[in-house]
């Protein structure tokens, strides 16, 4: 490219501008994790890992907020317990348990694969996550919901 460019070449000014970067899932950012098209199970587990991670962080803050109710007084805390032990709300506990189990177990898988120790068994480890996580979730769910 000569400094001035060839006179008369059409489109020179428009070409000089940086092009738009497209991401999966449209405009990009976080949606790029979530666009399921063309993804295999590895990409989906990545997306789920990120989602459960974000959810657990959010839960942590909610949890801290809720604990601060204790500062308000005993009746506030009792009212709160009434809400969260209702049948509908306990379903959230099951979802929470799912997030904890998946994020924790998959985290072990990611750490093992990601540090180069079990790269070839990456798929098998994902099934191990399911094999350990699913019964644990079922047991926990029965315990939470059946304890009513």
């Amino acid at each position: 490219m000569s400094a001035a460019g060839t006179p008369g070449l059409p489109g020179a000014a428009e070409r000089a501008a940086p092009g738009p970067v497209r991401h999966k899932g449209g405009a990009g950012g976080v949606r790029g994790w979530l666009d399921p098209r063309g993804r295999t199970i590895g990409g989906r587990s990545f997306a789920l890992h990120r989602l459960t991670g974000v959810a657990l962080v959010a839960y942590l803050y909610v949890h801290l907020g809720v604990l601060s109710l204790l500062l308000v007084g005993e009746s506030a805390w009792s009212d709160f317990l009434g809400v969260v032990t209702s049948k509908g709300f306990l379903l959230f506990d099951v979802v929470l348990l799912f997030a904890v189990l998946f994020h924790g177990l998959n985290g072990i898988r990611v750490a093992l694969v990601g540090s180069g120790y079990a790269v070839r068994h990456e798929r098998a480890l994902l099934w191990a996550v399911v094999a350990i996580g699913a019964p644990a979730l079922a047991y926990g769910a029965l315990h939470i919901l059946g304890g009513l």
């Binding site: 295999t40 590895g42 990409g43 587990s45 990545f46 990611v110 990601g114």
Partner: peptide, 10 residues
Amino acid sequence: RCHVGMECTR
């Protein structure tokens, strides 16, 4: 920075 999505190898 990699988070083991494994999509690159796929």
